[in-house]
């Protein structure tokens, strides 16, 4: 990794307001390098999820710019935004957001199918991911039969299906018991160790400490602390 390389995420003076209320984000600037694992901390309503949504292209800033992997995300239309997420973003949620009426394998396959990846190739990739994340025996089951930790592993597998350069995780351990939370924490750390760039939003200081290479803290829509070098970023 070189320090001169442009950041994978480049957020400049971003603000986001909803109606007449106080801004959810106010003048946030942030750069995230490839290979970093950034933990976004802060109390409820501080703007953590808004920041994540802006990076994912699910929301648009009221001002400023959001560039990810060289792409101005804030300028994308609906379709381009969808293609951007499909190719460059993987998302993991607190409540997994698995589709209950699809099997585990079909959930994992879905992003590849939406992207038009050839069937055989997609199946092979899904099998690899399920095996890598230790849930291959549940491939034919429906998510409701899995434990919370297993469901989050499936969600991670789905997020990684199209080999996105950026993994976004919103409270990935928030709905898990301690054991499952540890399980997911180790998984994210291992992914980052393999070079996966991660942005995770969490209240869980333990999660941030164990798998983030950097943390920022948001309060009332502003970055009040940016702590680099919690753990050295892994060079690719």
């Amino acid at each position: 990794m070189t320090t001169t390389a442009p950041p994978l995420i480049d957020i400049r003076d971003v603000s986001r307001t909803y109606g007449e209320g106080p801004p959810a984000l106010a003048g946030v600037s942030l750069g995230v390098r490839a290979g970093e694992a950034l933990a976004v901390l802060g109390p409820s309503g501080s703007g953590k999820s808004t920041l994540l949504n802006l990076i994912a292209g699910l929301d648009r800033p009221s001002g400023g710019s959001v560039t990810v992997d060289g792409l101005r995300v804030d300028r994308l239309g609906e379709s381009a935004s969808a293609r951007y997420r499909r190719a460059r973003i993987g998302m993991v949620f607190q409540f997994f957001n698995l589709l209950e009426d699809l099997t585990v394998a079909d959930n994992v396959l879905l992003p590849a199918q939406l992207a038009g990846v050839p069937r055989a190739e997609a199946r092979q990739r899904a099998a690899e991911l399920l095996a890598r994340l230790g849930v291959e025996r549940h491939a034919g089951a429906h998510p409701a039969r899995l434990s919370g930790g297993e469901r989050q592993r499936v969600a991670v597998a789905r997020a990684l299906m199209n080999r996105p350069p950026l993994l976004l995780a919103d409270e990935p351990t928030g709905a898990l018991d301690t054991a499952s939370g540890d399980d997911v924490r180790e998984l994210l750390a291992a992914l980052n160790a393999d070079g996966q760039t991660i942005v995770l939003v969490t209240h869980d200081l333990g999660l941030a400490a164990s798998c983030a290479t950097r943390t920022i803290e948001l309060v009332d829509g502003r970055i009040v602390r940016d702590s680099r070098d919690v753990r050295p970023a892994v060079a690719r």
């Binding site: 379709s79 969808a82 293609r83 997420r85 998302m91 992003p111």
Partner: peptide, 11 residues
């Protein structure tokens, strides 16, 4: 969820 996974409006 579909949209977060990259489903386009046309899809």
């Amino acid at each position: 969820v579909h949209k977060s996974l990259g489903m386009t409006p046309r899809q």
